[in-house]
């Protein structure tokens, strides 16, 4: 392992063992997002209006509730991976990076669970 050029510094280290998985899941979740957000965009256009009753009736149907919950999971998963790359690219200090990534995990999981919970609450007739 050399100290000069960039390639000299990585030679001999072997695989990082994690990059390919992140890359593939980013693509797989992108396909999920493509299908689910396209369905959501078309659903919005097909709604006669956005009144409370109209939207409520739409969201409590099993197909809408399930698809919207899946959308939340797929999109937040994609966001978790995408924002990780943003943090890794712009935060170079190990401590700051660790705190930012830990905070990202908490916010993404919390926000996604909030979304799925509100849909479940609506669909199961509690609101």
């Amino acid at each position: 392992m050399g100290n000069g050029t960039s390639i000299g510094r990585v030679r001999g280290l072997g695989s990082a063992h994690s990059g390919a998985h992140h890359w593939i899941v980013q693509r797989v979740s992108a396909i999920g997002n493509l299908v689910l957000t396209a369905w959501f965009a078309v659903s919005l256009l097909l709604m006669p209006n956005f009144n409370y009753i109209t939207v409520h009736d739409w969201i409590v149907s099993p197909v809408s509730a399930v698809a919207l919950s899946l959308l939340i999971i797929s999109v937040f998963w994609h966001v978790r991976l995408g924002m990780q790359v943003l943090i890794e690219d712009y935060l170079h200090e190990a401590g700051t990076k660790f705190v930012a990534l830990a905070a990202l995990n908490l916010v993404v999981f919390g926000a996604a669970f909030y979304g799925v919970f509100t849909i479940a609450r609506l669909a199961l007739g509690a609101a």
Binding site: Y52, V55, F76, M83, A111, Y114, T118, L122, A127
Partner: peptide
Amino acid sequence: NGLAVVGLGALLCWLGTLAAGPEAYAKYA
């Protein structure tokens, strides 16, 4: 990243106000 912050924020507010009832939803609308 804009979508992640503003777009998902708007989506969760939409769901939250829907679950909170017609008055909250009217403010969002």
